[in-house]
Simulated assay, not measured.
Amino acid sequence: MTDIHIRKYFFYLACIVVILAGLKAASEIVIILFLAIFISSIISTVISFLEGKNFPKIISYLVVLAIFTLISLILAYIVNISLKDFLSNLPQYEKQLQLLVVKAIAFAESYGVSVEKKTILDALNFSSFFGITTNLIGSIGTFLSKFLLIIIGIAFILAESKSFERKLKIIFEKDKESLRNLHLFSFNIKKYFLVKTSTSFFTGFFIAITLIFFGIDYPILWGVIAMLFNFVPVVGSIIAAIPAVLLSLVSADLNTTIILIVLYVFINITISNIVEPKFMGKELGLSPLVIFFSLILWGWILGIVGMFLAVPITMTLKIAFDSNHSTKWISLLMSNVKAK
């Protein structure tokens, strides 16, 4: 490599470091901006569908935005009420779980197994099991307090979308290839967000229905958590399942808990590994290594909300790289191409 190439790559690296540092410093604003852009991508697809059915543009715009706002407010209210009730009953749940552990220890001792009861009870801090999800929901609640700003941002982005397309056509009037690349990028982004949001919704919906069937407390709360954590690969579904599984031990029996775990695994595997790739397409897959480091990076930059946005942001970058011939190799490095 020549000195010029080395200096060029170090310049790019320095730019990336400066950009990431700037994003971290302005994380509160960046979170609102990213959420507004991502949600707008989904809503714009629905608006385009309604316009294709000969609905007036302004009616489609107002109806979709109003429905989204109403559903979000209802879900936020239900989650808030359920979470407050859950936290008030948390000490009672902890005592019941400790009693179950004591019974399990007594059962083991009846078969001659020597168990240090005090050591195990001290080591098992049940507050930490529930606390993981509680802290994460609390962090989500901080950004819900900025919900109005996100809605305003979505409204302005949707209102400017058509004029923005015209501006791009003027800018790239003599560069048709760049314009085609931008259209390809826009199409793939909308496809990804629509499919991912739909599969996440159905994951939460089926889990909530399952919990209602088994009579587990706060099924809507755990369903919403499952929907949100579906955006966090691998560990997300595990974290989302912890509180519901522990509650099933308290309110139901061991057989019900085992069945519930099996159904959790079945729902997540079916939707994430079968349904989602079928509609998403293999070309929109990310390498597990890239997913892992994206969770760490965006979690560090944007906090807890960054973990939910990590894969969407990384996928956006991958699609952007894939839309241009000169950067297609970066997209290939980020993709989930299995060795033969």
Rank of each mutant, 00 (worst) to 15 (best):
K162N: 14
F86V: 05
I47K: 05
P233K: 04
T270I: 09
G223D: 05
L13Y: 03
N181I: 01
G306T: 03
E51T: 01
L158E: 01
K318S: 07
Y111W: 11
T256N: 11
T314I: 03
V102M: 09
L62V: 10
L284H: 07
G153S: 03
F126H: 11
V305P: 09
T142N: 15
L211H: 09
S114K: 15
K95H: 09
V101C: 01
P312H: 05
P288G: 04
I189G: 00
I140Q: 06
F308T: 02
G303F: 10
M227C: 15
N188I: 06
L228I: 13
V290R: 02
I43N: 04
I78G: 07
F129H: 12
L263P: 00
N80T: 09
I261Q: 05
W298H: 07
I150L: 00
S127M: 12
L20H: 01
F10T: 07
L182H: 10
S40L: 01
F206R: 01
D175E: 15
E283C: 00
I43Y: 08
I171V: 13
H325T: 11
H183M: 14
S251R: 09
I37W: 14
L62M: 09
E51K: 13
W222M: 15
F229V: 01
K8P: 00
S82Y: 02
M334F: 12
N135D: 15
E160N: 08
V224P: 07
I212N: 15
F185Y: 12
I271D: 05
N273P: 00
S272T: 06
I296N: 12
A252S: 15
L297D: 08
L23C: 09
V245P: 08
G204Q: 02
M307I: 11
E276S: 14
E51S: 00
T134Q: 14
V234G: 03
S44E: 14
L158C: 03
Y218S: 09
Y77N: 11
S82H: 06
A123V: 00
S200N: 10
F143Q: 11
I105K: 00
